[in-house]
Amino acid sequence: MSDAQLKNLEEIFEQRIANDEKIEPKDWMPEKYRKTHIRQISQHAHSEIVGMLPEGNWITRAPSLRRKVALLAKVQDEAGHGLYLYSACETLGISRDELYEQLHSGKAKYSSIFNYPTVTWADMGAIGWLVDGAAIINQVPLCNTSYGPYARAMIRVCKEESFHQRQGFEIMMTLCNGTEAQKQMAQDALNRWWWPSLMMLGPVDAESVHTEQSMKWKLKRKTNDELRQQFIDQTVPQADILGLTVPDPDLKWNEETGHYDFGEINWDEFWQVVKGHGPCNKERMNARVGAWEKGTWVRDAAMAYAEKQQNKKENPAKAV
């Protein structure tokens, strides 16, 4: 292909995105578009799968049957999200095994928030309320992103996430209407999850390397700082309803801007966790790699069995 032809294809491609048309797997796309999407979709898929672990930690100890069932179903939904997102990613010409390999080797990232420990039952509430709340803010715009399979996966993911968020808030509400011990548990969870949730929306705009290109491809519609402000504005009144105190002494409503002002985020902590030195990075990776390695013989057996069945079908005489 000549440079002129390539340029022409790129122009048509960019025009289609500008017109809000969807790009589908068999359409031509620039290599950078493909790579960026593999990176982002797989990072999202990995976050779902690693995100099963901190909540999975409380399945056996959930305090009531109703909560146990809801938590199991929630963690299962996350597995389901992982499944559609890996499938969406596979349409870009990479296999699920390769994606796992990238996760296990540390080459691919996942959301840093899942490297924090879930130490009490209230963390199940805080994760649903704050972490899923921040995730929704990040993800709703992706329902209109340019890559068709990702956009369609996100529509379903967002529906389920908003259910999870309400469920998390309801756990918090129950605790806040409960005994003193339960209220303390809720406040303690908010204290621990508040700042990591703000960090979850990504580095400040000045340090965000992918923003500009991602905006053009509709992989991003608002900047990290805008999303963070939206999250804070939406969440602080919810904390008020719960009767909990947001652990930020600088938090204050600003009449002029119509937004909350908030204190400085500890970005050193953020980068420490991103670089692999958070409280649970090693545990999370060991759990994922461990499940994968312990499952090798199972997956091998399933393949061997399928081959045997296929052979029997093709050579019924020999299969006696």
Binding site: T60, L72, Q76, A79, A291, G295, R299
Partner: peptide, 22 residues
């Protein structure tokens, strides 16, 4: 079965075992 949620040998078996548990 609930103990295994998130630790299955593949996503599909993980989802199925969780289903049975549910």
């Amino acid at each position: 079965l609930g103990e295994l949620c998130g630790h299955g040998p593949s996503l599909e078996t993980d989802i199925a075992c969780t289903n049975i548990s549910l």
